[in-house]
């Protein structure tokens, strides 16, 4: 009964979408000639690059070059995001008012301003003072942004561990730091894998914003290709698909890790 009703609703929605697409492409008079055949060479192509590099071999197309940069930016930002987030998350629980206050201020400041604005500030203001490259500025902005969210996730994870765990560790003579490292954090990390994965999937998608500081990531390369060829629909669909490849792989990987860590449950 419920199943039938639900599938009926799904079918209705699909029908409405199909009808709108049909209407959009026919009745509104938009005629679009698809050029999907132009896409593969933007991902991989076989040939020579230029007169300077005439070797004929399999080479990465512009979208693949962008894909690799986005991957690099994401991995670096996730790495630093975890480090910043873990430290700040622990500081949020400190008994020291200054440490606690500063870490709380960082989290609130970063979470309550737009990432796009942060990227501009770090690139144009901090970046020009410290002579940062676009890559350094972009990954710094993303790491700091992710760090704030990771900090809150880490804090919640630590707080979710029963206080008896800390007491048992301390009663055995471990210092606070030893107890954190050997007892609390391993348990907390296991518990926060799902929200962390969600955060890092967001980070990969948010990394598309660094295209505004001329970092030639996947989004930037896509925009350039559109500007060159006008095949906006095909290129943006492909760009979306390539982001999906990254996020979906991450999603699968975390599910695998989660299953592996479930042994002790």
């Amino acid at each position: 009964m419920t199943f039938n009703r639900r599938s009926l609703i799904t079918l209705c929605i699909l029908a409405i979408i199909a009808a709108s697409v049909y209407y959009f492409f026919t009745r509104r008079g938009i005629t679009y000639i698809w050029h999907w055949e132009k896409i593969p060479e933007m991902v991989f192509y076989h040939g020579s690059k230029s007169a300077d590099d005439p070797v004929v071999r399999l080479r990465m197309g512009v979208l693949m070059i962008g894909f690799m940069l986005t991957l690099k930016i994401s991995i670096v930002s996730i790495f630093f995001g975890i480090i910043i987030g873990t430290i700040v998350g622990i500081c949020r629980l400190s008994h020291e008012p200054v440490t606690r206050g500063l870490s709380a201020a960082y989290v609130e400041l970063i979470r309550n301003t737009p990432l796009l604005v942060q990227i501009y500030i770090i690139y144009f203001f901090v970046g020009s003072m410290l002579r940062l490259s676009a890559f350094a500025a972009g990954t710094a902005a993303l790491s700091i942004f992710a760090g704030a969210y990771v900090a809150e996730i880490v804090r919640a994870g630590i707080q979710s561990i029963h206080k008896g765990q800390m007491e048992a560790s301390r009663s055995l003579g471990m210092t606070y730091a030893e107890a954190m490292r050997h007892v609390i954090l391993p348990q907390a990390f296991k518990r926060i894998i799902p929200p962390l994965a969600g955060q890092f999937i967001s980070l990969i998608k948010d990394s598309s914003l660094v295209s505004v500081i001329a970092l030639a990531d996947l989004m930037f390369q896509g925009q350039q290709a559109v500007a060159r060829t006008y095949h906006a629909f095909e290129i943006y669909f492909t760009v979306a698909f390539l982001y999906l490849v990254m996020t979906f792989t991450l999603s699968m990987a975390t599910q695998y890790i989660e299953r592996r860590l479930a042994i002790s449950d």
Binding site: H162, G164, Q165, E167, A168, S169, S171, L172, G173, M174, E178, H182, V183, P186, Q187, K190, S264
Partner: peptide
């Protein structure tokens, strides 16, 4: 000073053996 708690407070992410060896190694 050894302490034994009402709710045991074993380390759930460690095996029985590792529960007993952890503090020996760390402390």
């Amino acid at each position: 000073i050894g302490m034994v708690f009402q709710l045991f407070n074993l380390f759930p992410h460690k095996t029985v053996l590792d529960n007993v060896t952890l503090a020996q190694q760390v402390v």
